[in-house]
Design a protein around this nucleic acid. Sequence first.
DNA 1: CTGTTCTGGGCAAGACCCCTAACTAGAATC
DNA 2: GATTCTAGTTAGGGGTCTTGCCCAGAACAG
Lengths: 357, 357
Amino acid sequence: MTRPSQELLRSISDEHVLRSLMAGRKLTRAELAVETGLSKPTVSESVRRLVENGLVADTGERTPGGRGKGRVGSFYGLAGDIGVALVVTIAPGGVTAECVDAYGDVVTHVRNRIADAVEVAATLPLTVTEAVAGQRVLLSTVSAADPVDRHTGRLVHLPDSPFLVGELDPVEVLRPLVGEPVVVDNDVNWAAQAEQTALGTSDFAYLYLGEGLGCALVADGEVRRGHSGLAGEISHLVTVGPSGATPFIEVFGELGLRRPGTTAIDVARVGEADPVVLARAISGVVTALVTLADPEFVVIGGSWGPSLLDAITSECARSPRPVPIRVASVAEPSLTGARADALHRLRAALVEASKAQ
Amino acid sequence: MTRPSQELLRSISDEHVLRSLMAGRKLTRAELAVETGLSKPTVSESVRRLVENGLVADTGERTPGGRGKGRVGSFYGLAGDIGVALVVTIAPGGVTAECVDAYGDVVTHVRNRIADAVEVAATLPLTVTEAVAGQRVLLSTVSAADPVDRHTGRLVHLPDSPFLVGELDPVEVLRPLVGEPVVVDNDVNWAAQAEQTALGTSDFAYLYLGEGLGCALVADGEVRRGHSGLAGEISHLVTVGPSGATPFIEVFGELGLRRPGTTAIDVARVGEADPVVLARAISGVVTALVTLADPEFVVIGGSWGPSLLDAITSECARSPRPVPIRVASVAEPSLTGARADALHRLRAALVEASKAQ
DNA sequence: CTGTTCTGGGCAAGACCCCTAACTAGAATC
DNA sequence: GATTCTAGTTAGGGGTCTTGCCCAGAACAG
């Protein structure tokens, strides 16, 4: 446990001030005192320390311009060169890279389309370099549209599952460009995290139905990834197919909905299939989800999943433990989730830096 | 966030001293200083406060008796009337009640056998009253061999699932006897928690095969109970039965292994069934578990599950994502898990009490 | 028996940290 | 030019932790 030192109190004060500035952008010392609940002298001392450490700076702006009489105050804000977080998404359609500052503002955003998974290796470094543009990157989060090994951050190729962006080690690619730490997770987990932030629900499941098939489980307010990060890789979960019990992914094979020569679902042609057959297979997956994880509801996301909402809902209503089905509410969910996590980690890293000295 | 007050430092010191005493039973102030890393004057002050608040007392024992020369020291320990935690297990075979003190010692233990679920209502209060025996109970944990509603603590009767101890509201029964708070969970979750403590593994699944069928999921070091506490209620999970896809519980029906007139498995006759058929059904459940939760391994517990280890292992080895299978290692797992949690909560409650003033 | 050694515990001084209260600086207003 | 009002500083007090020193008193050596 923490030792009860005077330094602890000081660092708590600094954290209060720093977090207030992250939320409030520009504040005078008097405003900071009100915001943090600390006394004016304590805030002044804390600001002095933070300026000295290079985390906070006088913005140059002064108070007046209409707010009463009184002495002019100095606005303080986070230092300009304090650093940003990099957010990367890697999906079959393209690669995105963003830089987010500690206020939560997206300061750069670069998106490059790709036609094929082989282009990822070449496009990724270019996109990242353009987005970084010389800024100081303190950490990165990466969303990849494939299973991710929790310990190494490498993409995992599960046999016969959709595998969309190719063998790739994002940590290895990013490290020379932006340094450590690099956090990699799959797009469905990030999407679920975004949904969790938006809905505030502690226990739900996110079922992603697009070119790939995936699912994420949120339990006690956090996405649970399992031992190696492969929780929710449901391609081989046995469910109800056109000809009896079938692994989920093979249902699409039997229906002729997989793109020839690849492992991906042919999204454009999903609409041609019988929605009831699809919904029955999906309902089998949902039943297993409900049985094992007991979610409050199941969120359906992905490119074609939401269009089957009604069929899925009526199939699931017939199961022994029916559960509400919803459509995902967050746009660009993987990017949003990865960005929220990057912001959270960036702020924590800066607070940590203020405690370091 | 916490305010940076002087009082915070004081309460941290007190917590250090209190937790050292919980671990060390009897310590002099000098030993406490070494143990906590605090200075002697700080420890002395803290002990003075804790004695004043009634949490700590001079044991009357004095140091000498052979340990070197030096001045005699006074041993301090937790106050005798500081309070205990009550641990209750309710299973088809009987009701157990224990009191645990903050050192982790079981100070009373009462066990009453029952022949039938209807006896629970009468036996439970008797057993608890005998175990409590006038002691001050600060909190209780209850293990029940049926699904438990996470929010109310009441037992839930899922249709056609084994239901062993009858309609019961443990919170309502215990409140008049011992007061709040009462934490109720099902026996499988407690068993998994005990296993987690013993093994230290963060992500695994616990499959319980006894009179009832259940499973618990440990993710990121904690048992995850789901929205309403019904995670892992696998009776209706569809798996491979003798005649194709069948809900898990109905496999036992088809094999004639359910006790007539009840919903329970006839444990005595499980051995008569073909182990391969059983193992295949179990393997189907394990596959779903692995797919959705990605455990590091699966622990098999319950009265008859471990005897099928070899059959289950060889069936599971054939699945697309094989996972190690182990036998549960903790004896009396539900009681052990509930007791460990009670101890943890009791200690936290005492620390909280030291901070209250 | 006496002096030495050694350990538990207390006391005093100092360093910090936070707070309140009073004060100063400086601009707007009357 | 006096008043009013706000930002920020200074001074003093209370609290907590630490270091260093001293004292009490039992065991031990001679």
